[in-house]
């Protein structure tokens, strides 16, 4: 059996190798696919903190993905139209600077996660799933009716936002940014799960009542994890919007929340590299099988069924021979 650290290095190495090959044979579309996989992986890495370590099955994580996307879309829209963004008391200019947009996306997503978490984490199990789903639908329908920013049609951005020293319109350079952020999120995730906070969060998932007798509160642990999780997913949303140069209400859809969960289940719930494997497989199937048949989801469903029935630890669990944590 292979160690989880080796799998992590191999998977990240393979992703880089595919991109290097695409660069050599001049296949920019493959680089874009790899970028898409890296961004979806980043979103799922965020969700994996809540789901994998904290046991919070959130069916509303698309809220944070969408907020990150709209943070990018709105700021870039005002920058390209040279109009001010009216925030009520103050007006601010738009921006095309990626680092600024990322900070806004992180902040807005974290704030939303805090508010949603404060309400939804008072419940558990199916009620938590339903409340997060309800929040997702609220944001979805709000975005549909938000005509100032495209409503149901979404909002197109005609420029790629900039990063100091890089030409983000070049696919390999934009991939580099996304890959670096993915690695940073994985590093943060690894440090988090090994920290006393991460261990206590893991323990709170296993025996919530018992963690209180050692002086910790499951609610606070889960809330902090939910905020970190939402912020990372929000950052992924900003990158996704930048990749497509388009934001729409579908970024808030419950189907997207479900897809993020599927990515994690395929790779391995609670596994560090699980979301990356799930995202790469998802994008690969979407591209290759999607070209053969429009019913490619059937094959994805069959894979998911097989994993749930025969490999509870996902692909990482299969490779390491260890079942994942029970969520």
């Amino acid at each position: 059996m292979i160690g989880e650290r080796s799998i992590t290095l191999v998977v990240l190495g393979l992703l880089l190798a595919v991109v290097a090959w695409a660069l050599v044979v001049d296949e920019p579309f493959t680089i874009t696919l790899a970028t898409r996989a890296a961004i979806l992986a980043l979103a799922a890495v965020g969700l994996n903190i809540a789901l994998g370590i904290g046991g919070m099955v959130s069916l509303g994580h698309a809220v944070f993905f969408g907020l990150g996307g709209y943070a990018m879309g709105i700021l870039a829209y005002h920058a390209q139209s040279f109009s001010a963004l009216d925030l009520g008391l103050v007006s601010v200019a738009g921006t095309k600077s990626m680092p600024v947009i990322w900070l806004v996306a992180l902040g807005v997503s974290a704030l939303a996660a805090l508010l949603i978490g404060l309400l939804s984490l008072r419940t558990s199990g199916v009620y938590f799933i339903m409340i997060t789903l309800a929040f997702g639908q609220m944001f979805y329908y709000f975005a549909i009716s938000w005509s100032a920013y495209g409503g149901e049609d979404g909002l197109s951005i005609y420029v790629r936002n900039g990063f100091p020293g890089l030409n983000t319109l070049v696919p390999i350079q934009f991939f580099g940014i996304c890959f670096a952020l993915l690695c940073a999120a994985l590093f943060l995730n690894a440090r988090l799960r090994a920290s006393p906070f991460g261990l206590a969060l893991n323990a709170a998932r296993q025996v919530p009542a018992r963690i209180e007798t050692v002086g910790l509160t499951p609610f606070r642990l889960k809330l902090v994890a939910f905020v970190i999780s939402g912020a990372i997913t929000g950052l992924a949303g900003a990158l996704f919007a930048d990749l497509n140069r388009f934001v729409s209400p579908t970024m808030f859809s419950w189907q997207l929340s479900g897809e993020l969960i599927v990515l994690i289940v395929i790779g391995g719930v609670g596994r560090l590299i699980g979301p990356v494997i799930g995202a790469c497989l998802f994008v690969a199937l979407e591209h290759w099988l999607g070209g053969l048949t429009e019913f490619w989801h059937v094959y994805l469903g069959a894979i998911l069924l097989g994993i749930v029935l025969f490999a509870r630890g996902g692909i990482v669990g299969l490779l390491t021979g260890r079942e994942g944590p029970h969520v």
Binding site: P196, L199, A200, N202, A203, Q206, V207, R210, I211, V214, G215, P325, H326
Partner: peptide, 14 residues
């Protein structure tokens, strides 16, 4: 905490 190692059980409560 069954999914944690011995050391992790101790650190989580420390």
């Amino acid at each position: 905490f069954r999914d944690l190692t011995v050391e992790e059980n101790l650190v989580a409560a420390a």
